Simulated scan of single mutants.
Amino acid sequence: MSHNRITHYDGLYGESNTRPATDYIFSESLETRSPTFDWIVKPHIHTRLYQLFFLKTGKVVFQDTNGSCDLDSPCLLCIPPSALHGLVYTPDTTGHILTIADSLIDAIFPSSSPALLTLSRLHRIEKQEDEQAFHEALTLFQKIDQEIFGDEPERQPMIRAYLAQLWIRLYRLIKNRNDVITTGQSPALAHFRHFQKLIKEARFPKSIPDFADDLNISAVHLNRICQSVVGKSALDLIQEHQIDEAKKYLRFTSYSISEIAFLLNFEYPNYFAKLFRKITGMSPKEFRESQ
Rank of each mutant, 00 (worst) to 15 (best):
F262K: 04
L30D: 10
F26T: 15
I181D: 14
L119V: 01
R172P: 05
P91G: 02
A107G: 01
L87C: 01
S68C: 10
T182I: 10
E126A: 12
P157M: 04
G184V: 07
T90K: 01
A115F: 04
T183Q: 11
H96V: 10
Y162I: 03
G150T: 05
F54E: 07
T94I: 08
Q128Y: 13
I199H: 02
L222F: 05
M158Q: 15
A137V: 15
H241V: 01
D210E: 06
D214G: 14
T280A: 02
D213V: 12
N178W: 10
I217Q: 00
G231A: 01
E126P: 07
G58E: 10
L55I: 12
K206T: 08
F195L: 12
I100P: 06
I105W: 00
E245S: 00
T90H: 05
D145P: 06
L30I: 11
F266W: 05
A188S: 15
T32M: 08
H221F: 02
L116T: 04
R124Q: 14
G231Y: 00
F149M: 13
E129A: 11
L138T: 08
C69H: 13
A164K: 13
D214L: 15
T90N: 01
R251I: 00
G281A: 05
D38T: 09
G184W: 08
G184A: 11
I148F: 03
S27T: 13
D179M: 13
D130V: 02
D210C: 06
Q63M: 12
V41M: 15
L52F: 15
L30C: 09
L84G: 08
Q142G: 12
A107E: 00
H3Q: 14
V60D: 08
R177T: 15
D236L: 02
E129M: 11
L30Y: 10
V229D: 00
D106K: 09
P209T: 00
E259S: 11
F204I: 06
Q51H: 05
T183S: 11
E136N: 14
P153C: 12
V230N: 04
L49H: 00
K127N: 07
T182A: 12
S103L: 04
I243S: 00
N176G: 14
I279K: 03
S258R: 13
P110M: 11
T182C: 08
F37N: 02
H8C: 11
S120E: 02
R19E: 03
Q156A: 11
T22L: 04
R277N: 15
V229L: 01
Q242K: 04
I105P: 00
D23P: 00
S233G: 08
A188M: 14
L117E: 12
I257P: 07
L250Q: 06
S233E: 05
T90W: 02
T99H: 08
A133L: 12
S233N: 06
D214P: 11
F141H: 05
R193L: 12
I144M: 01
L222G: 07
Y89H: 00
A83T: 07
D213M: 15
Y268M: 13
R169F: 07
A219D: 13
Q132I: 15
V61D: 13
S103G: 06
S112D: 15
S2E: 14
H221S: 03
L275W: 04
